[in-house]
Nucleic acid binder design. Structure first.
Lengths: 336, 336
DNA sequence: TTGTAGGCGTTATCAA
DNA sequence: TTGATAACGCCTACAA
């Protein structure tokens, strides 16, 4: 039922070859013919069939992103903003964005990637929430599939990436807290195999070190990047005989959980305890009190990642393959 | 380079026909042969090429969802949960999920849909954030493309949908507030062309009516479903000479904005003012105080929508084409 | 129970 | 400058 190139050709009494080339802008077709072709194609509402084109050209003009859905009922404002950035930039370049979901680390995640790679479903991949050693990097590099990551891993492969300098960011934050007079500063992180954990935690340690403070193991807790996790971790911290006066969190959701825990215990955040997060999600502006955080421009990062990936796919050389951005410290009332 | 069905056939010294049918589960292939085929295909890592399959079968095995990104930097927990539900159910059925973004109502939205429809990019569409009269419904119905909506419109077309009975929900809520002694109840809604606004606002009016209360125009404000919008609307309401004692909000984000406005004005939410939302997003559990809301199970709804759509695509008859769910009133501290 | 062959809509090669 | 033709990888009548 849809209009094919053959229909257009017949109407014009031309060969499909000529029509194809006229539309693709080859220069070996008479200008006059081209105009007629374009005109008629438009009139007839002709749009090339993607599948046929893909089959013939051996590329999909589609990029893939697999959502790391840590929980079944999963809701993280980071991702809606990230996807929105990906979607906008991809559309701008006339590509498609294919999305799937998979629990990180599970076998299903591996299956999803394998199916897409083997089926040549997309031309390139966008990865985030990287592990320090990430089989996805190894796998895609080995399969010779273009991909770009948000956050870097320790894997040896050569791939373009964007990362936020969490280390420097957290160090600045710790520095600030120390200047505010804090001595007992806690850190709520995440699984140690996550790239952001390595990055941000090392910033925390360095910050303490430069301030001449000792790292107290009881003040360091591993959590899971969720609000609920932050809540539980904070309950542990605050029930210590000598609780911290400040808490640095690996992300905003965790910090929001900590604020809740503190409030539930009757503490006044900022007077009794300082709390800070990382990400700069919108929610962080609206906690009570508003949350001090290190902001990363997620939407813009997502768009930039797509640009990198498209260049990589097309084999265009990149001026910068490893972009590092500095997070911006946003001081709000939660740290006094 | 990738493994094709031909490679598998050659290795097995069988025809590609037999391999194809063995893998597709036809019953006219010897059980013994089938086992060998499956075995070898697995070993060789064979995955059917999507494009070839699509071209041959004239369907994409892909469904499309166009994110209504109301703001450029857009972050709404509703959507990450919704997408996660779509992704999971789609994957389970071996379909793909294609995503794009478009500002509602803009010409770009129209262009995005048209491009996908003309290019036969997807087999069916998922729509939400419906307008009362929605050109998308008219257009897709006219083009004879399968689609399913979340929330219904007034358009005459016949299409499957899931909707939440916001009217009944809000009515119950108003009823509850009245029983709590509230007489001056405000409503913060959204643009009147949105389906959810019509639905929920009518519940509000009915609730008042049944309680014998008069609708006060000054207590009804149009906002934009965002936290910021809720904040501004609440500032207006609370600066009235005779401010409301309770505020019903069209969604949780709005309500969270209202809580913030109230706190900033030094009001104690629940003692000085009651506030309720709609959606049941995770954030609503963690406001201070926790937010009373009408819960809709977004993740499950998303999965259900995919099921409806796949049935529609395959032409399977549906027992229920118009599913209506009741929201669940979750009473929390924000309403005393 | 298995194999042969045609074609889905494009693009690319080669010839006219 | 244009056209005939052969793939791309798969599925499916139809034949054997």
């Amino acid at each position: 039922m849809p209009v094919t190139i053959r229909d257009v050709a017949e109407r014009l009494k031309l060969s499909i070859t000529t029509v194809s080339r006229a539309l693709d802008g080859y220069d070996d077709v008479a200008e006059d013919t081209r105009q007629r072709v374009i005109q008629v194609a438009l009139e007839m509402g002709y749009v090339p069939n993607r599948a046929a084109r893909q089959l013939r050209k051996q590329r999909t003009e589609t990029i893939g992103y697999i959502l790391p859905t840590s929980t079944p009922r999963f809701s993280d404002p980071f991702f809606s903003e990230f996807i929105s950035g990906l979607g906008d930039e991809v559309a701008k370049n006339n590509y498609d964005l294919l999305i799937s979901t998979a629990e990180p680390g599970e076998d299903t995640e591996r299956l999803v990637y394998q199916r897409w790679v083997h089926g040549h479903r997309v031309d390139g991949y966008i990865l985030n929430r990287m592990r320090l050693r990430d089989w996805r990097v190894q796998y895609l590099a080995q399969m010779n599939v273009p991909f770009v990551t948000f956050e870097r891993t320790l894997d040896a492969a050569d791939y373009p990436s964007i990362e936020i300098n969490g280390q420097a960011g957290i160090k600045t934050l710790v520095d600030y807290l120390v200047k505010q007079g804090h001595q007992r500063i806690a850190y709520i992180g995440a699984s140690s195999d996550l790239a952001i954990q390595a990055d941000r935690y090392s910033g925390f340690r360095q910050g303490l070190h430069e301030a001449g403070l000792l790292l107290q193991q009881e003040l360091v807790i591993e959590s899971d990047l969720t609000r609920q996790g932050g809540l539980r971790a904070a309950q542990k911290l605050l029930s210590l005989s000598n609780p911290p006066t400040a808490v640095v969190c690996i992300n905003d959701l965790t910090a929001i959980g900590v604020i809740q825990a503190a409030s539930e215990l009757g503490l006044l955040v900022s007077r009794d305890i300082a709390i800070a997060g990382f990400d700069g999600i919108e929610d962080a502006e609206h906690t009570q009190p508003p949350l001090t955080t290190l902001n990363q421009p997620i939407y813009e990062i997502a768009r930039e990642i797509v640009k990198l990936l498209l260049a990589e796919i097309k084999g265009e050389p990149l001026a910068e393959r490893h972009i590092q951005l500095q997070p911006e410290l946003i001081l709000r009332a939660s740290t006094g």
